[in-house]
Amino acid sequence: MTSIKRWMNPRVWAYVFGYLFAVMMIAPLLWMLISAFKEPGSTVTILGKLFGTPFTLESFAKVLKPDGTAMMWRWTLNSVIVGVVQTAITVLLSSWAAFAVSRIPFKGKTFIFALILAGMMVPVESIVVPLFQMVTDMGWSNSYNALIWPGMMLPLAFLILKQFIDQLPNELLEAAKMDGAGIFRIWARIIFPLSSSSMAAVSIFIFIQSWNNLLWPMLVAQDTAMMTLPVGIPTFQSIFATDLAVPMASNVLASIPALLVFLFFQKHIIKGISMTGIK
């Protein structure tokens, strides 16, 4: 009777469904990881053959070999450059914009705030064609300018930073003004240090989004040397025909940087968003 009551407890079923959901999420990642350590050309779609063949690093060696058929190192460098530069400039611009809209009085501030938020409701796909035409007219195709600048401003980053700056006490900023501090000095000496946690959380979001971006780099980077990892990795499927081990190895390598960034800075995500004031 005790065991029946235990299984009738809703909390028990919540744990059961939670673990089942976790297994469903982890299973594809485990399949990718195991397949990456199989020989090139081996069958990885049948469970018995997946575990029946020896593990090897040949697929990773084939991916990283600079033999002209793949440019994994170049694609990784492109993704790092685009991700780091885009993250740094986007966070800086978002912080400036959030500080201006939150603390600097000027006409039309409400309209500008609404206009920025409206950008969150516009699908990226709806502006791809005119944006691509603009980049082409400027002669930026197959360049870092085309990969970086169009994705520079993120409304979500602006919103998160503005919400934090709104909660800073006015007395703190007024004291700085009385000491003769200008707008830029207030931002550099007060806003920037206090919002470092929120900026770190925003930086993680921007970097991971930039790292995984496929649509825009696929349009503006037709040259193989300018491809990023999400664009270059699918070429392994066409290069190596039906081989799945090599594409899986490339996916494992491409996932490592974003995974490390998230693991090392994951505490800043919760801290940056949940902070509602200062101590």
Rank of each mutant, 00 (worst) to 15 (best):
S141L: 14
S141G: 10
Q167H: 06
F184Q: 15
S197K: 02
P155T: 13
W187V: 06
V202K: 02
A146W: 07
P150N: 10
N145H: 15
I148V: 14
P130F: 10
A175R: 13
I190E: 00
G180R: 10
S196K: 05
D137K: 14
K177M: 14
L168H: 08
N142F: 14
P155I: 13
F158L: 10
E174K: 11
F184C: 15
A188L: 15
M152W: 12
L154P: 07
F184A: 15
I206V: 07
Q163N: 12
G151P: 03
S203T: 04
T136I: 09
A176N: 04
M152S: 14
D137A: 15
G180F: 04
E174A: 03
K177P: 12
S195F: 06
I183H: 11
F207E: 00
F184G: 15
N142D: 15
L194I: 02
S141A: 14
M199Y: 01
P169L: 08
W140N: 07
Y144F: 03
F207I: 05
P155F: 09
S203D: 07
W140S: 10
I148P: 07
S198M: 02
P193R: 03
M134D: 10
P169H: 10
S141Q: 14
L156S: 03
P155S: 11
D179N: 00
G139Y: 03
R185Q: 14
V135G: 13
I191D: 05
L147Y: 09
I190F: 02
F158K: 08
I186S: 13
F205N: 00
P193N: 05
D166M: 09
L194C: 01
D166H: 04
F184L: 15
A176Y: 03
S198A: 03
L194K: 04
F207P: 00
V202D: 01
F207K: 04
I165P: 02
R189T: 06
A200Q: 03
Q167I: 08
G151L: 09
L147K: 09
G182R: 07
M134V: 12
F132C: 03
A188T: 12
D179C: 01
I204W: 01
Q167W: 06
W187Q: 04
A176T: 06
L131Q: 14
M138Q: 12
V135S: 13
L194A: 00
D179Y: 00
L173F: 11
N142V: 07
A157H: 02
S203V: 10
R189M: 12
E171V: 08
T136S: 15
P150R: 10
N170D: 13
L147E: 09
N142H: 14
M178S: 08
L154N: 14
R185Y: 15
P155M: 13
S197C: 10
M152Q: 14
